[in-house]
């Protein structure tokens, strides 16, 4: 365990050093974060106005959803995209061989090898936005609510990671699946808005098949004190299921890789 911690520190230390090699990029990323958040808020504001709501959510409540979406978008930028996007490169350049020959779990390696600090600013901004929205909606934060929100954010992070990982792992077969993650990104963008704003069939899709609902709407509902226990339980079960699926799919993919490639 200690070895994994030490490795992780080294991984991220080198990631930081790499970023510093390209300072202009960091600047551009930061600017992109600000532009993106500004655009999202502008777009969200179009749905609101005097006496107007979005699927029963007020402007301030919708801000919480938008805030959580920004958090997970930041997580995607900081963590998922740089790592899981690189699986394709590992396969194409054959450097996956080196990873597999290290006495360390290969999924750990490909999932945590690097990170992009610019995404962290988005996470912070998102948390701030959610806090602001919660404050404006008159939320009183009790320790119990806080713990539940954090738990559901963890659940959401696991679901998001597993979805990304499942798709990224297919690049073991198809070297060009990078754009499959673009489809995922497009669909996940639906998490910008409260689930109730969508028509019923989509709501079902976003809860069970592609559980976008658990990324943003459910944690926001917990914060607003109106989440039902069965829904939370479903989220936990789903995240465990998706994670197990991602893990076994990776092992399966590796078996394919080691039996077929040359």
């Amino acid at each position: 365990m200690g070895r994994y911690w030490r490795t992780l520190r080294r991984f991220w230390g080198t990631a930081l050093a790499t970023q510093l090699e390209y300072q202009l990029n960091v600047l551009v990323e930061l600017l992109a974060v600000v532009l993106s958040l500004g655009g999202s808020l502008l777009l969200l504001s179009l749905f609101f106005g005097p006496g107007r709501e979005l699927g029963g959510w007020s402007w301030n409540q919708a801000l919480i959803v938008q805030g959580f979406y920004t958090v997970f978008d930041g997580m995607t930028t900081a963590w998922l995209r740089p790592n899981l996007g690189a699986i394709v490169t590992y396969v194409r350049e054959g450097t996956l061989d080196f990873v597999l020959l290290k006495p360390i779990d290969s999924q750990f390696w490909v999932s945590l090898r690097t990170f992009a600090p610019a995404g962290l600013s988005e996470v912070v901004l998102g948390l701030g936005l959610a806090a602001w929205g919660a404050h404006q909606s008159g939320v009183v934060l009790t320790p119990a609510v806080l713990v539940t929100v954090l738990l559901m954010l963890m659940v959401a992070a696991v679901i998001l990671y597993s979805l990304w990982f499942l798709i990224a792992a297919t690049s073991i077969w198809f070297v060009k699946t990078w754009n499959a993650t673009e489809v995922l990104r497009a669909l996940l963008a639906s998490g910008r808005y409260p689930l109730e704003a969508y028509p019923a069939p989509l709501r079902l899709l976003f809860t069970l098949v592609l559980p976008v609902a658990f990324l943003t709407t459910v944690p926001a509902e917990v914060l607003l004190g109106r989440a039902s226990f069965p829904l939370l339980a479903l989220g936990i079960v789903l995240s465990a299921g998706f994670f197990a699926a991602a893990r076994s799919f990776w092992l399966f993919a590796l078996r394919h890789y080691t039996s077929a490639s040359s």
Partner: peptide, 22 residues
């Protein structure tokens, strides 16, 4: 094929390997 990190000095890759191999 290379395992060293392209943008960084080899020393950084060596430190990563040291950690990975404990």
């Amino acid at each position: 094929k290379q395992q060293l990190i392209w943008d960084l000095p080899p020393m950084d890759s060596l430190r990563v390997n040291a950690a990975v191999y404990g």
